[in-house]
Write a protein that binds this DNA or RNA. Structure first.
Lengths: 173, 173
DNA sequence: CCTGAAACGGACTGCTGAGTCCGCTTACGG
DNA sequence: CCGTAAGCGGACTCAGCAGTCCGTTTCAGG
């Protein structure tokens, strides 16, 4: 890809905007047709840039996932592993729940964009908190994220912070 | 519906058996074709008895939901509302998680077969426990079930009891 | 301005799954 | 054992969605 023609660049931008909006509204179920229509292009145009729907989704959520990785790395560099865990969860939840639809996409994509990296970092944050006796350790580090995610996604619109508190209370050692 | 011809009754039974198995295995995503094939009938036969897929699902899960209603009513007649709540949750969870696929169907169906009734009973169980100061009361009774359900469904196969304990610990006053 | 490569977009394919229809089959009462 | 209504089942319609193809349009450099 040397350079993008001006109209192509414009359309690419429109597609990404429309896709972001659509995925935010409908999660992974948003259809390519719907996105193309909203962007004012034919859906062939979408597929030229993103060979599959998942590729488009990766492009849309990459920024989010990367941001979460940064937060995790900050948590890992803290010298209070317990507090770091709770701060980390709150920050990531805030980010995820600002656009629940997109977060469903992150879950849907699993390891693909940088999900594996994020998982690994998150698990290390948990493991450190457990070693510091700030968290119950009968759950494995890998199990903590699904539990928290499930609680967040199950909450009615305004209530996710409360649901999160309940689960975090249950997780404390 | 006066009487059912012998072959019809036989087929109806086969369909219900196959549907139960299929829904248990795949949740609400099981297809009518798949069920009809497993039952050894054409899918037209399925639709004659159950005009829509949901109707078939209702028939399959009705027994489950009714059973849960009974458990809820027992809990309501206890004179220790706190303990009754925890016993109730454990029993319902045991029932639901014995066939997670069917439970997904129950959730999918929402109010239809007797879901509204079950919700109401469950909420009363919660409310009584809250009044007895056995449960934190910053959640509304209607919010408790979704939270617990989410935790159960998010658990890896063998771990749902642990996930349940975590959430229940978080819910205690 | 003029041309060719890049980009476009919509018609098309292929798939899956719900729900309908109707000609054929079969149970069962007389 | 026979007539008929109940029952059967698969071919069919309809809809939605991912992904492909190709004739047409448009950008941009010479």
């Amino acid at each position: 890809m040397v350079e993008l023609r001006a109209d192509a660049r414009r359309n690419l931008e429109r597609v990404l905007d429309a896709a972001t909006e659509a995925f935010a509204a409908s999660g992974p179920d948003a259809s390519i047709d719907e996105i193309a229509r909203a962007a004012g292009v034919g859906h062939g145009t979408v597929f030229r840039r993103f060979p599959t729907k998942d590729d488009l989704m990766y492009a849309v959520i990459e920024r989010h996932v990367a941001q979460m990785c940064v937060i995790a790395e900050e948590a890992l560099s803290s010298d209070d592993p317990g507090q770091a865990f709770f701060d980390f969860v709150h920050q990531v939840a805030e980010l995820a729940m600002s656009t629940p639809g997109l977060h469903k996409c992150v879950v849907h994509c699993g390891e693909k964009p940088r999900g594996a990296e994020l998982d690994e970092l998150g698990q290390e944050v948990v493991a450190r908190a457990q070693r510091a006796r700030a968290l119950r350790s009968d759950l494995t580090p890998a199990e903590v994220a699904p539990l928290i995610r499930a609680a967040l996604m199950a909450a009615p619109p305004g209530q996710w912070r409360l649901f999160l508190e309940v689960v975090l209370d249950g997780l404390r050692a």
